[in-house]
Design a protein around this nucleic acid. Structure first.
Lengths: 345, 345
DNA sequence: TAATCAATTGTAATCGATTGCATATTAATC
DNA sequence: GATTAATATGCAATCGATTACAATTGATTA
């Protein structure tokens, strides 16, 4: 277990100074060609590798970025992370993963922890709709040293960049599609609308209804968690109504799946009796045997890549004026069997 | 954007030395109670936070661990990573993610890169069956400074710990279950058997056949990639045989799904005509509407947690003799509709 | 009263690389 | 041949925290 060689070792071997070695390795023009060559050869020979920790301490840059997500084991988030990693690794950055489990206190703690290990930036999808009340987060905001980029679940905060999809449009088009299928009574499985993404999907839904002369009926909107079981519960509520809906637009694929299960078990047919549209394009929506699920693709890979790019721009921006970028990707409605009564014109 | 306060700032404010402040903060018993109290209060007041980079440089410990996987956006790997993160974060570690895309050169590079940023350990699922021929990997092995733990896709290398499931048993039980269903001609969608996991599933399959008096038929084993399309291709080959199989045990859920699609499209019924069993318990296997897929659960969360624990043991082991631990988790066959012709006795 | 000891705190080196400011050497110029 | 300029290298501080090894202080003891 021999120690790693340092520039001092190289310097000693060549009768030089660490300073000279350092400059030679960094292609400083002040170093003579001979010395440079000698140093480079010796470095190779001695298996020299730059100590990044020393560099980090000196420069204040760790070349690590933190990524905070509610959880990593969902296709959406792991795909975003994949995109981030693919974009940042070639630039020399490593990606540190943190999960919040949707708990505000954990999110708080992880933000602190990441700042504490001197990450060069934080990319996050928030778990706390009231992030501004969060101490760790506020410290991060004030000190402004660590670039912050929101993706997907963002907060509209001045000076903070974000990458999202146009959730309004996603909600609008999903609803419009259902209307085009002849549906008149469209329910919506929403989620906590303190989060922009869910509020916007909801608003898109409402707008589509209004644009097409359908009265908004609040009783058709049910707040639903993003999981199969709660989707079932919501569907049950809807089916038990005096006049059940003829379509459901769910802000979550998982809830949509639960709804589909509940609907089928009650003997109704999809899409004939009830059309269903989900959100996120989770893999299983494509794999369904009978009723592949219509859903909205959020392009998570691209979202991750873009968030990484925005981060890179921010760190490379040395000027005084900070550029805030709010990128909005366009979602894509993917029409499948769960909502397709007949070919659209 | 004020600078972060250091122990020197605290020292200056109190007319002390950085050494004293450091000791006070670290509860060194040589510091008087008064001084300690004073230092702690001032530290709090000045929002002092320990600079981990400086600490890392001094101590040689970065409190980062690297995790290398083929890809992160599959449920299996993201679940393992989730387990790792949950286990390590409370101990002060951060998890750095690297993807190889199953490419050997990238794997090589990422190993080097992680060692270079001084991670305290590497947990990995290999992408290269001939890892020993890998330069970066060998360096890692020789120098022995950075603990290495394999999970799932491991290599049997002396001195290297690993956490896997008993793939042999998984393959055996899957096959035995098919035999119990009355299947006589069981095909196997294998994968590159240079990887232990695939070889062992294959061997378990063979053993179950042999134990039950069924002759092994090599033509029923088809090397298949872990994706839907290749599963279709493999199924097509099998269906086109003179005597097609009456069951398929796939070493991948994705290939199993492809096979199911192909079988159904050719007008055959599952499980009546052909039983199918997958491997991994990917979410979609449970979500299938008609034919939920029988599969083998690998307990990825637990695998991740265990791998993390093994790593923690290795770093805390300061003795000279290195303890190598090879944990083998027990897989669980999850019987669903794709293979259940009738209740098992 | 001088010697000894314990309790605190300070000094300075260390981890490894970078960099502004000398300095030394050589070459070019008058 | 003396002066200037250019080139190459060294010196030493810095990033922030830790830690052997002094050094100081006051108290205790012979």
């Amino acid at each position: 277990m021999k120690k790693k060689t340092t520039i001092y070792d190289i310097a000693a071997k060549l009768g030089l100074t660490a300073a000279t070695v350092s400059r030679a390795l960094n292609n400083n023009p002040k170093i003579s060609i001979n010395t440079r060559k000698l140093v480079l050869e010796t470095a190779l020979e001695m298996n020299y590798e730059q100590n990044k920790l020393a560099l980090a301490l000196k420069s204040g840059k760790s070349y690590n970025v933190g990524v905070i997500v509610p959880r990593i084991d969902s296709n959406f988030f792991s795909s975003v992370i994949r995109g981030i990693e693919e974009e940042l690794y070639p630039k020399g950055y490593h990606v540190i993963i943190c999960q919040t489990h949707n708990q505000e206190n954990i999110e708080n703690e992880k933000i602190n922890s990441l700042v504490n290990v001197q990450v060069d930036g934080i990319l996050m999808s928030i778990s706390n709709a009231n992030l501004e009340e969060n101490k760790g987060f506020n410290k991060l905001l004030k000190n402004k040293k660590t670039p912050l980029v929101f993706f997907d679940r963002k907060k509209d905060i001045k000076g903070i960049s974000s990458v999202t999809i146009n959730d309004f449009k996603g909600g609008y088009e999903a609803t419009k599609h259902l209307l085009d299928q002849g549906c008149k009574r469209i329910a919506h499985l929403s989620n906590d609308r303190n989060f922009e993404i869910f509020r916007n999907r909801y608003l898109g839904y409402k707008q589509a209804l209004s644009d097409n002369g359908i009265d908004f009926d609040e009783s058709l909107v049910i707040e639903t968690q993003s999981n199969v079981l709660d989707g079932r519960r919501a569907a049950r509520l809807l089916l038990d109504m005096e006049t059940p809906p003829d379509a459901i637009f769910s802000s979550s694929d998982f809830a949509a799946l639960g709804a589909i299960q509940e609907i089928k078990e009650s003997g109704l047919n999809i899409p004939e009796d009830i059309c269903v549209v989900g959100f996120s394009n989770e893999p299983f929506t494509r794999f369904m045997e009978l009723t592949t699920i219509t859903t909205v693709d959020q392009f998570p890979l691209e979202m991750g890549r873009t968030a990484a790019q925005v981060f890179l721009e921010e760190v490379s921006n040395t000027g005084d004026i900070k550029i805030t970028k709010n990128v909005v990707l366009t979602p894509q409605l993917i029409i499948r069997k769960s909502s397709l009564k007949h070919k659209e014109g």
